[in-house]
């Protein structure tokens, strides 16, 4: 369970948002909405602990994420704007190594199956350098098929994806939520995801 109390974010001398509060339980999906520059990405990074909040606290299972760092991070999968792919490694190497570097010891077969699940297995042995923007995004998102944690924080996961991939990802998100996972995402696209409880959080200036 993720609980957020009274969160505020100051970037430079600009207050992006304040008094952000919500509670996310197993099976819950939270959409973070807002215009460009309203602080959606900053909020997601703050929830991950990459940015320290100006005020307020993030709790994971009733403990602050500072006390519970290891337990929280092993449950967290964050996909931000940057893909985290190495141009000189193949798609398969990128996926396998990034999972292993995060302590998730996956086999190459499993990683290949994850690439297949998002329909990018043809590019498994191509260096990331030659992939298109959408293909790179799909290689990054394939991580979700390997993720073991409960909480997914996704920043614009549908951007640059084709229609077929969008529906594959939406189905995967639905599956994750149905099995007791949680997801927080920002998107500007209208995508239907099935979840027991859907909340929206609107950030405005």
């Amino acid at each position: 369970m993720l609980t957020v109390q009274n969160l505020a974010c100051l970037r430079g001398d600009r207050l992006l948002f304040k008094n952000v509060e919500f509670e996310l339980n197993a099976g819950g999906l939270l959409y973070v909405l807002g215009e460009n520059g309203s602080g959606k990405s900053s909020l997601l990074r703050m929830l991950c602990g990459l940015i320290l909040p100006e005020t307020g606290t993030v709790f994971w299972d009733k403990k602050t994420i500072k006390e519970e760092t290891e337990g929280y991070l092993s449950n967290l999968t964050y996909i931000g704007h940057l893909n985290g792919l190495k141009d000189d490694l193949t798609a398969l190497e990128n996926l396998t190594m990034s999972a292993r570097a995060a302590g998730n010891d996956v086999s190459e077969d499993k990683a290949f199956a994850a690439l297949a699940a998002i329909g990018i297995e043809r590019c498994a042995n191509l260096p990331a350098r030659v992939l298109s923007q959408g293909q790179k995004r799909r290689v990054t998102l394939a991580k979700l098929w390997l993720a073991k944690g409960k909480l997914w924080i996704l920043d614009e996961p549908f951007a640059a994806l084709d229609i077929a991939s969008v529906s594959r990802l939406a189905a995967k998100l639905g599956e994750h939520l149905a099995s007791g996972g949680m997801a927080i995402l920002t998107t500007h696209q209208d995508v239907t995801i099935h979840a027991q409880s859907i909340q929206t959080l609107r950030l405005s200036e």
Binding site: C48, E70, L82, G84, L85, D87, A102
Partner: peptide, 12 residues
């Protein structure tokens, strides 16, 4: 630049 550092910071 490519975001792998972020992921390294988020590793348990």
């Amino acid at each position: 630049a490519d975001g792998s550092l972020e992921q390294m910071l988020l590793a348990p």
